[in-house]
Amino acid sequence: MSTVPAPRELTTRPRLSDRVFRRVVTAGGLSSLVILGLITVFLAYRGVEVLRQEGFNFITKSNWSITTDDAGNVVESHFGLAAMLVGTILCSAVAVVIALPISVATALYLNFYAPPWLKKFLIAVIDMMAAFPSILFGIWGFLVLMPSIEYWAKLLNRYLGFVPVFHVDAYVFTRSPFVAGVILAIMIIPIITSVSREVFSQAPLDRIQAAYALGATRWGMIKAVVIPHGRSGVIGGAMLGLGRAMGETVAVFTVLNIVFQVNWHVLFGVGGNVASLIILKFGEASPYEIKALMAAGLVLFVLTLLVNAIADLIVKTTGKSGK
């Protein structure tokens, strides 16, 4: 016991078949890295000309115009995403503000209130909703939901119109960022709900029972144990939802009235988002305009990556602090 030897260096090599296996799996595992890298490289490569031309104006100005002469050469062009970026943020912010409380309450209901049979059924239904195609939300939102939302939007404007975001310049309530936001909210509720449900279910049982043993009501227990435990996980889930809402294309394009004008008034029927701009302009875009669209795609890509990275970080830190 007096002398402890140094650990042995193990030099045996695994068999050839295992080395091949590990290489193949590693190569496959790196596919996500390769794909994400290629996306960045190619979008940047196609968009760099426009980005260089426009500089910061690309994200601060909001006009989208291109003039070509008869030979098809570009005479003059202005590309600025500001209105679309504002619209992206506005729509997805509305979505998260609406979806977050509903999702958290649903997750709490599923974990702590629902009878077991109902819980199973609801989880299946909500998971299923996450698999609904976005074009369905778009068309349903436009034809079915919009009239109802319009009514609520008018109500909000009448009683809360003095709050700047609820102000409207003209009496146009259809196809507003608010409508798009509500539809996006419905689309991201399943995501935030399932993340929240996950973190709530990890709340330590001993602490839950301790709270009950101290005479806490169910809500008291949730406030004292579950919410503090799950808070950052829920925020992470909301960020994931935000990322999804920012990248949504077809549903937003279907309901939103896309106009190149910076509009911070959620109820006013003018807006846009980067993804739907790409769909809108792609059909008749000239080669140079396509480059601008690629640059817009790059901006959107970086934005969603950023939001997702932050979300991932937040969700991970809860996992650790909770134990």
Binding site: R8, L10, T11, T12, R13, P14, R15
Partner: peptide
């Protein structure tokens, strides 16, 4: 059994 070159399997 830990010698280099030993086939672990």
């Amino acid at each position: 059994v830990y010698a280099p070159g030993v086939d672990v399997t």
